[in-house]
């Protein structure tokens, strides 16, 4: 009796011990899986169902620099599959910018990226945009830091300013008179560069003399006039720095027209496509810039990231752009590029 009971119990134990092994092919022993699985990504993708619309506002749509930048922005729009509106005043005009931004607010875009002609003047309208729930960033030329999330800068202003001064000093043999043709005085990026040109000048080049700083307001007609006037008024001039692409090109034209090619050295900011002929004929010695396409592209990518809740980070590797630097709330795209007679053919913008 007892023996049979014991046998039965033993059998039961053995059977129960064996049965766990045969049912399913896998039996979990230990799991390290956490809730990190796909479940949390779902709401994000559903949000993305509606396409983001991003407004990129340049200083002026007719400025070549910005038309090139627009190409990059469009490329990014295609890559990221979002809507990008590249609209602005024809020329660098702050009131025109305000109008365009207003209309963008009406159209309920998700984000406005502005290259500010006048940071002060844009404060109210950008404030208004933010209150409408639109994110605001600045690119190319900074807006007031109070009314934007971050600023997509092309280069470090100090690096660029000092480099422009060095380039001119190299061309002039570190002595002589020079002038600066800048864009609008109100544009913050230009004034930053201007500041650093002067810092570098004072620090290293005592035999060089800054004759005048002339504003062109990035208006081609006005620029041509002031450049001519500058050459006429200052025959002793040995060099000109074009602190904006408009200033650079008008200076080159004026020098060429005055037959002073080579005598008056011209350096400054300009894209290779417009500079190529001047470089080849020797009118200008060196053009410095970055890729405006790349800037447009980067601006759109960062705008898209921000809409997805990702702020730019220092050292972040942006596909098709490279690593970016972030200093405070300023993004720095990279280092300036120098275009000379030798390498200008490599570039296509």
């Amino acid at each position: 009796m007892i023996r049979k009971l014991m046998l039965f119990m033993t059998m039961m134990i053995i059977v129960s011990a064996c049965s766990s092994g045969s049912g399913t092919p896998y039996r979990i022993v230990y799991s390290m899986d956490t809730q990190q699985t796909t479940s949390e990504a779902v709401p994000d993708s559903s949000l993305q169902d509606q396409r983001y619309s991003v407004a990129i506002i340049p200083k002026g749509t007719e400025i070549d620099y910005f038309t090139v930048a627009a190409e990059g922005a469009q490329e990014a729009a295609n890559d990221l599959d979002i809507d990008v509106m590249f609209e602005g005043p024809k020329t660098a005009d702050v009131s025109g910018q305000i109008e365009v931004i207003d209309s963008m607010i009406q159209r309920h875009v998700d984000l406005i990226a502005v290259s500010a002609n006048d940071p002060e003047a844009l404060i109210p309208v950008l404030e208004k945009a933010r209150q409408a729930g639109i994110k605001v960033i600045s690119w190319d030329a900074d807006a007031d830091p109070q009314v934007r999330d971050f600023y997509v800068n092309m280069v470090d202003p100090e690096t660029l300013g000092r480099h422009l001064m060095d380039t001119l000093a190299n061309a002039m043999g570190e002595k002589g008179n020079f002038a600066i043709l800048t864009g609008a005085i109100s544009a913050s990026n230009l004034s930053d560069w201007l500041k650093w040109i002067q810092v570098q000048h004072k620090a290293y080049y005592p035999e060089m003399n800054l004759v005048k700083v002339v504003a062109t307001d990035d208006n081609l007609t006005k620029a041509g006039e002031v450049a001519k006037q500058l050459l006429a008024e200052h025959p002793e001039l040995n060099g000109i720095i074009g602190n904006s692409s408009v200033g650079f090109l008008s200076a080159a034209n004026a020098v060429k027209d005055a037959g002073k090619a080579g005598a008056v050295k011209v350096v400054g900011l300009s894209n290779p496509n417009f500079t190529r002929s001047y470089l080849n004929e020797g009118t200008v010695q060196m053009a410095t810039l970055w890729s405006p396409k790349k800037l447009g592209y980067l601006t759109v990518v960062l705008a898209n990231n921000l809409l997805n809740g990702v702020r730019p980070a220092d050292g972040q590797d942006i596909p098709k752009v490279g690593k970016i630097r972030v200093v405070g709330d300023m993004v720095i795209m990279g280092e300036p590029l120098d275009f000379s007679k030798e390498n200008v053919n490599q570039y296509d913008f």
Binding site: V29, S31, M32, D33, T37
Partner: peptide
């Protein structure tokens, strides 16, 4: 695709005898 988890260990009963598989 049949593995029961992405990270951890499980026992697999195959024809060639039971195996302890760890996965990460």
């Amino acid at each position: 695709d049949n593995y029961p988890l992405r990270s951890g260990s499980f026992r697999a009963n195959h024809a060639g005898g039971a195996k302890l598989m760890s996965i990460n």
